[in-house]
Design a protein around this nucleic acid. Structure first.
Length: 572
RNA sequence: UGGGGAGUCGCCAAGUGGUAAGGCAGCGGCCUUUGGAGCCGCCAUUCCUAGGUUCGAAUCCUAGCUCCCCAGCCA
């Protein structure tokens, strides 16, 4: 084990235990490029989010690839905000993205904005106009669409396509100067209206948008389109390998075209498959809708697939990194099962979480033969996976709480826990036997009367064995806690699968959040937001920021693997 | 229908002419004062289909089939 692995709160990407250097086709290309001496063997990448939403687990895959590969080959990675559309962007997103990238464990070399290059991009546009490769077009948006043609029919040349260079220069400058209203004109590349690649049918380079930009204020009222900005931004930064997702495959020829026409540094784009997860929606537009329509409680709602949501829920950066490293990088459109992510979350939490007792749904237990005022201090192991985590004392007394699910008045087959006349071990306590079931007027079980066997104290000489061990908490010593239990946000593996006329919100899981009033052991008194624990036998839980003095709030990160639940499910 | 991309176990994925890695899930068993964790074992005679080349094909050729992307003044 290396030093990073023994660090309980790993924050650096080096601590990723899974090989971050698993082979993939982009990595192979880099190795070949280094061997051939391309760009002097230099590797440089970039992570280019648009600040129009929060980062999600899909971005994590891209981040791990962009930063991971550059790091492996001693290269650099810039964080560059692709901020060419002020109508959708905001500094709130800029700040959230920076925080999330760092939380994931990565540090960028340069921090840039596509808007840093607006003047250069403008100058290059003038250069293309002078080379008769671009023109100002007065067609409306609707007309532009009509002129573009269809998948099977070529488009028609715009009537403005053959304006003189002088007129184009004059019009473009006046566009920049704000003389024309939004949507009245565009600057277009003069390529080929009959191209089978629709991106080549005289793509729009600039549109007029009289709108304040979060970085450049009111300096510009024309903004470049993605295709006109992205490749050149890569080129300006001398990015050697520019990774993006599959849907940009069709844009690569245009990416190359601008670079070639301008004669600038030849960055190369490579496309890989975007991450899709079952029971999850990855579209930023749809995630925004969930937030805006208050279908969730913000971008960091623990049910969201955002990095901020996962952080609040208790997922660790290392778990996410290991998950990403386990993923393939290919060109296949696929959907990874949620269980694969959950596996890596459990794997990491199991190694690092302190164990603690929490009774989620309390059921009172009275030990009739236990001394009224006796309180024993029992020794409990903090983490069986890590001896250095030590032990703690937990108070044991006559009145306890156990989990409602650990008692069945009529036990089904294979149910090893408590039931009338049966015995069970209390973890770090004694073996107890259920003698009597107390019910209220409505027939609800409100209390169990049990006896304990004084000879069976944990750690003592007794070798008596019972089928099951359950957790408990001393009623007089336990702390109250709010526990937020989560299930998947959607009920369907594919949330997009809806009936005619419905949208993905029709698949929202009405039971994705359940709030419990629980009892937790007293050692949790000073727990602070972000602390992660394993509630023994129940799962992993994380202290929510809503926690305040005297009011503990936990989020369920993920349950433990539950063999009994599986057996019971199978019986149904 | 034009162009581009892709089809290997339930899911992800190695493999690049020499006889189908690995992970997740699943299923058995061991162990256990967490029905947790851990450990052991099982899990593709076959690679979208059909032909062909070859001593030999997931890998080469031919013809089909299926899925994804592109008709924003979004990225």
């Amino acid at each position: 084990m290396n030093a990073a692995e023994s660090n309980p709160t790993p924050t650096e990407a080096e601590s990723t235990t899974e090989s971050a250097t698993k082979s993939n086709f982009i990595r192979d290309i880099m190795i070949a490029d280094i061997e051939s001496g391309k760009h002097g063997g230099r590797i440089q990448t970039r992570f280019p989010p648009e600040p129009n939403g929060y980062l999600h687990i899909g971005h994590a895959k891209a981040i791990c690839l962009d930063f991971g590969l550059a790091k492996e080959f001693g290269g650099k990675t810039n964080l560059r905000f692709d901020d060419t559309n002020p109508s959708k962007e905001d500094t709130e997103y800029v700040e959230a993205i920076k925080a999330d990238v760092q939380w994931l464990g990565f540090q960028w070399d340069g921090l840039f904005y596509a808007s840093d290059y607006f003047q250069q991009l403008y100058d290059w546009a003038v250069q293309l106009i002078k080379a008769d490769k671009a023109y100002v077009c007065d067609l409306t948006a609707d007309q532009t669409r009509e002129y573009r043609g269809t998948l099977t029919e070529p488009g028609k040349d715009s009537p403005y396509r053959n304006r003189s260079v002088e007129e184009n220069l004059d019009l473009f400058e006046r566009m920049k100067n704000g003389e024309f209203p939004d949507g009245s004109r565009t600057l277009r590349a003069k390529i080929d209206m009959a191209s089978s690649n629709l991106n080549f049918r005289d793509p729009v380079m600039y549109r007029i948008l009289h709108m304040e930009h979060h970085q450049t204020g009111n300096e510009w009222c024309i903004y470049p389109m993605y295709d006109y900005a992205h490749g050149q931004s890569d080129s300006i930064e001398q990015v050697t390998h520019s990774m993006c997702t599959l849907e940009f495959d069709n844009n690569r020829p245009l990416y190359n075209w601008f670079i070639e026409q301008l004669g600038i540094f030849p960055s190369q784009q490579y496309e890989f498959d975007r991450l899709n997860l079952t029971y999850t929606i990855m579209s930023k537009r749809k995630l925004l809708k969930l937030v805006q329509d208050k279908l969730v409680n913000g971008w960091d709602d623990p049910r969201m697939p955002t990095l901020s949501g996962m952080r609040r829920r208790g997922y660790t950066p290392e778990a996410i990194r290991n998950f990403c490293a386990s993923l393939g990088v290919s060109k296949t459109n696929g959907t990874t099962q949620l269980q694969q992510l959950e596996y890596y979350v459990r794997e990491d939490l199991n190694k690092h979480s302190l164990r603690v007792a929490a009774v989620l749904k309390p059921l009172k237990v009275m030990l009739t033969n236990y001394p009224d005022d006796l309180v024993e201090e029992m020794d409990a192991v903090n983490n069986p996976e890590d001896a250095s985590a030590g032990t703690r004392k937990v108070p044991f007394s006559k009145t306890l709480y156990i989990e409602q699910d650990d008692f069945r008045e009529v036990p089904p087959p294979k149910f090893y826990r408590l039931s009338p006349g049966k015995e069970v071990r209390l973890r770090y306590g004694y073996i107890i036997k259920c003698e009597e079931v107390i019910k209220d007027a409505d027939g609800n079980i409100v209390e169990l009367r049990c006896t304990y066997d004084p000879e069976t104290r944990s750690g003592g000489p007794s070798t008596r064995k019972v089928k099951a061990t359950i957790h408990w908490v001393s009623a007089a010593h336990a702390l109250d806690a709010e526990v937020r239990m989560y299930d998947t946000l959607f009920t369907k593996e594919n949330p997009e699968e809806v009936e005619e006329g419905q949208d993905f919100t029709a698949n929202l899981n009405p039971n994705s959040l359940e709030v419990l009033t629980s009892k937790v052991e007293p050692s949790l008194l000073d727990a602070v937001a972000g602390d992660r624990y394993q509630f023994e036998r129940m799962g992993y839980f994380c202290v929510d920021p809503n926690t305040a003095p005297g009011k503990l709030v936990f989020n369920k990160t993920i349950g433990l693997k539950d063999t009994w639940a599986k057996i019971e499910q199978r019986g149904k």
